[in-house]
Amino acid sequence: MSSLRPPALFRIWDVALIVLLLVLVGLTLYFALIPSSGEEAEIYLNGEKVATLPLSVDAVWHNEHVRVVVSGGTVCVSESDCPDKVCVARGAISRAGESVVCLPNRVVVVITGEGEVEAIS
């Protein structure tokens, strides 16, 4: 095509193009991920729902084995008397669909809300 400039490996405008693309991807991520942070943490004991805590309000739920802490929009199992401490090591979760499980104490914490990623992946 005679209307096209001959191809080059690099032109100075490439820098601007890359910056523009980074911004575009960043914006898409930003808008797509806003609604996917979770809204409520549901706590299950022996498979039965025993508590529903909104992530927007700091709160603590505990029984004789575990302590579940909601803080700053995240939830974690802060203390547990189980031997492996997998639930404590899981750390804080905040996105819809994420969960913390303590098998020995049969406690499950699940975050509900829009866009539950792990439900489909």
């Binding site: 191809p7 080059a8 690099f10 032109r11």
Partner: peptide, 23 residues
Amino acid sequence: LLLRIGANGLPAVSAAGGILHNL
């Protein structure tokens, strides 16, 4: 569009294509 504008090198044009394909 980028080829018509002609301000970019081929790898950058193609990389833009790759990113937008995924997008």
